[in-house]
Nucleic acid binder design. Structure first.
Length: 484
RNA sequence: GGCCCCAUGGUCAAGUGGUCUAAGACACCGCCCUUUCACGGCGGUAACCCGGGUUCGAAUCCCGGUGGGGUCACCA
């Protein structure tokens, strides 16, 4: 595999989808594993739905995921341009070639006629293939149709009785009957190529060595192979990766919840965790490990270990994996990631003073072990932003009804006021609590629980010492005083 | 419906004819750790879709069925 050249070719018609992201990731990992070239090409021939806006979004999402490309729409390269709408003359050239060689022909059927044909065939229970009305038009007939204002499409003449074999790296050999294909359009009446044609011209002219894409394209592949043959080109190696399914085992779609990369980014997932998770959907290293840094993935990824069967997207597992990364990663980075969510929740407003920032950092440190993704930070740090402590649990209420409660809180307040400055360090908090217990002859739950509930309103939550450190002397005293 | 793909626990998956009384992970349950919850540690429940072959021997190979998925556009 001397010159591996692979591409990710999204059509800019919406945000980057989970499935697209995985295809991109597999291509990228494959390229990096073999020291090849990764290309990003934009397939924007669907004028109706394409936009520069989504192109930018997709590129941003890819970058966020940690992918980089050697050639592509924004970085250029020797085989550009990398946007299909900027390659129109190229397609024209090859379409003319096919027309001249007789491998393709002009078709003047209107969309209405075609729709009617299709319907009639379906009604008879037959395959809705093109009837071939324009297959052998004479020059006069063409002129007549032109004169009538008909704009032709270019149709590829599918060889009859041909069997097309797709040699697929993950599926093995798959064969299709040519008779089931039917002449298909390669250039629309507005002169813009269709997917099946443009993709072939591009993959060939960009010297793509391996086409790694989702299984939904498998049935398009014979059409493309026929085109390679007609053009006298060698086919790339194909590898069709199975689909990612939703919980109900149908293709991932909106109703399955968050399906765009953007949404995961916005919820505060770590890109390397998402990449790790996506890599494990349909690929496995064969070992028992499953936490892989991008570098490790590049090193271990091969197409041979890509599974054939579709995989259900399991949010629970993603959450677990992301939580794992959250616990491992740098606190500074996590704090930065938490900021927008805290601001959105109305707890802070950004530019933060150094002091405030440090405080937020302490909060993040205290709650990170509870998080699956950073957006959840807000609900967990809520307790630090309001002195109006609400008790919701019955158990907490019972605790506060204890006989010793008032004394304990009073004692704590007393000690805090005489022993510390405005700041409370966590070990100071620990010592303080211990002292209270010792002086009062109480232990364990009897002192910690009332303090916890008085401070946070709940019997559960972050480490009490950290809570006190975050609240500071003033905050602690304020909250405890309400119970005196 | 035609064509195509797929089929190991609820989910991701290891497994390529014997070492499978089938690994690991998520989820779930239990125990431990712990001034709470969580994290972490330990343990547990749980699977080779069905039926025929081939073979001394099949989760692994073949055929059929069933189930799931994809695709059948002047979308990509």
């Amino acid at each position: 595999m001397s010159s591996v050249r692979v591409r990710f070719a999204p059509s800019p018609t919406g945000p980057l989808h989970i499935g697209g992201a995985r295809s991109a990731l597999f291509n990228w990992l494959f390229a990096r594993h073999y020291g090849g070239t990764f290309i990003v090409r934009v397939e924007d021939t669907d004028l109706e739905r394409s936009s520069r806006q989504s192109e930018e979004n997709i590129l941003d999402a890819l970058r966020w995921l940690g992918l980089d490309w050697d050639e592509g729409v924004d970085v250029g390269g020797p085989y550009g341009p990398y946007r299909q709408m900027e390659r129109l003359e190229l397609y024209k050239k090859y379409a003319d070639y096919l027309l001249n060689s007789g491998a393709a022909y002009l078709c003047y059927c209107s969309e209405e006629e075609l729709a009617a044909d299709r319907e009639a065939l379906m009604a008879k229970g037959e395959l809705p293939l093109y009837l071939g009305r324009c297959r052998n038009l004479t020059a006069e007939e063409r002129a007549k149709l032109e004169a009538a204002g008909r704009r032709p499409v270019v149709r590829f003449r599918v060889p009859e009785n041909d069997v097309v074999l797709v040699r697929d790296l993950v599926r093995g050999d798959v064969s299709f009957e040519g008779s089931e294909i039917g002449d298909y359009i390669i250039v629309k009446s507005d002169g813009i190529p269709t997917y099946n044609f443009a993709v072939v011209v591009d993959d060939h002219t960009m010297k793509i060595s391996h086409v790694i894409r989702a299984e939904e394209h498998l049935s398009n592949t014979p059409r493309q192979i026929l085109l390679y043959n007609a053009l006298g080109w060698e086919t790339p190696v194909f590898a069709h990766v199975s689909l990612i399914l939703g919980k109900d085992r149908s293709k991932m779609s909106k109703r399955h919840g968050a399906t765009s990369i953007e949404q995961y980014q916005n919820r505060g997932y770590l890109p390397e965790a998402l990449a790790n998770f996506l890599a494990l959907l349909g690929w496995s290293p064969g070992s028992e490990e499953e936490i892989f840094s991008p570098d490790e993935l590049k090193q271990q990824f091969t197409l041979e270990r890509v599974a054939k069967s579709p995989a259900v997207f399991d949010l629970d597992k993603l959450n677990w994996l992301n939580g794992h990364y959250i616990r491992e990663t740098d606190l500074e980075r996590l704090t930065e990631m938490a900021l927008p969510h805290l601001e959105k929740a109305g707890y802070i407003s950004t530019p933060l003073s150094t002091e405030k920032y440090e405080l937020v950092k302490m909060m993040v440190a205290a709650v990170r072990k509870y998080l699956s993704y950073m957006q959840e930070t807000a609900e967990h740090v809520k307790i630090f932003f309001t002195d109006d402590v609400q008790i919701k649990e019955e158990e907490a209420r019972e605790i506060m009804a204890g006989d010793q409660v008032k004394v304990v809180l009073q004692e704590l307040i007393k000690k805090i006021n005489v022993t510390v400055t405005d700041e409370i360090k966590t070990d100071e908090a620990r010592a303080l609590l211990k002292e209270v217990g010792r002086d009062l002859g109480l232990k364990g739950k009897q002192i910690f629980m009332p303090v916890r509930v008085a401070l946070t309103g709940s019997t559960q939550g972050p480490d009490l010492n950290q809570v006190m450190a975050i609240l500071g002397r003033a905050g602690v005293v304020r909250r405890l005083s309400k119970w005196i």
